[in-house]
Computed example of a mutant assay.
Amino acid sequence: MSSSPSSSAQAAREAVAARLKEMRLDAGLTGVELGVRCGWHKAKSSRIENARTPPSDADIRAWTRICGVPEQATDLIAASRTAETMYVEWKRKQRTGLRRLQESYVPLYERTRQFRVYSSDVVPGFLQTVDYATALLAAITEFRGIPDDVSDAVEARMARSQIIREGRRRFAFLIEESVLRYRIGDRETMSSQLEHLLTTMSLPTVSLGIIPFDVDRRIWPMEACYIYDDQLVQAELLTADVSISTPGEVGTYLKAFARLQEEAVYGVKARTLINSAIDALG
């Protein structure tokens, strides 16, 4: 995968910054002169041009107006907003709780036909039981110190996950064997979750591959990622949700996913790993 999951976002910010600098140079203005005419501190122009400070909509409108190209403001504002939504910290997305975040993915799910999901730490949301999701979202709520709407968030997650049973889409899930062993919730919760995997992997829309501990790795365990129709990747970091749409970077994720598929086991072998994990629970 890419060296930095946030590189697409940074590249988008730098593209906006470069265009603003180009406008200033075309207008024959120095950064100080631009700042004076815009009514802000002389260092602000430099921070914006070096992509250290994202410009606000008002900043862009002032910049383009002073440079004599106000008609370009709309496109630049759109590009700047896109850049800022590529890398979004969880504390921003979850500040009001988790229910709205669960619901916000529904439009994306509805327009996607091919899902590829990789996880090295937890069972993907599509495949979670109510109790497992409750334990996981409760842990997230406590860790981040956000409003507790876990019950509503779980209900929303369960509702959106019904999409795997509709038959019009295809889901390829890859999980590390560690996902079967990491204890989320109590023994009963984990056992029920593993039993649920045995049930859902038989759905005609679902392919579930498990990468065993003892496989000879050609690609290392990585951050969880969701790939939508070869067009968009969402990588989940501890601190942020990263959206990647640059074709080259999406292609790198697709390459990594394909290699992980080659290392995974399916069918009877996958069921054996799941049953082994169930047995280990006692």
Rank of each mutant, 00 (worst) to 15 (best):
E22W: 00
R24G: 09
D26C: 06
D26S: 15
D26F: 08
A27E: 01
L29S: 00
T30R: 06
G39I: 12
W40P: 05
W40S: 06
H41S: 13
E49C: 12
A51M: 01
A51E: 12
P54S: 12
A58P: 03
T64A: 09
G68Q: 14
Q72K: 06
D75H: 08
D75W: 09
A78K: 11
A79H: 12
M86Q: 09
Y87M: 04
V88N: 05
R92C: 05
K93Y: 09
T96N: 06
L98C: 10
R99K: 04
R100K: 10
E103K: 04
S104Y: 05
Y105W: 04
V106L: 14
V106Q: 02
V106R: 10
P107T: 09
Q114L: 05
F115W: 11
R116N: 06
R116E: 04
V117A: 07
Y118K: 02
Y118S: 03
Y118C: 08
D121W: 08
F126I: 02
T129G: 01
Y132Q: 04
A133C: 04
A133Q: 00
A139S: 14
P147C: 02
V150T: 15
S151T: 10
S151A: 10
V154N: 14
R157L: 14
M158Y: 11
M158H: 14
A159P: 07
R160H: 00
R169D: 04
F171E: 05
F171Q: 07
L174H: 02
E176S: 11
S178F: 15
S178I: 12
R181A: 03
R187Q: 11
E188S: 03
E195Y: 06
P204C: 10
T205F: 01
L208K: 00
I211A: 01
F213Y: 15
F213S: 13
D214F: 07
R218W: 10
R218T: 13
R218H: 12
I219V: 13
D230K: 01
V233K: 06
L238W: 13
A240D: 10
V242P: 07
V250N: 00
G251M: 11
T252L: 10
A258E: 15
A264W: 03
A264I: 13
G267S: 02
V268T: 13
V268I: 09
R271K: 15
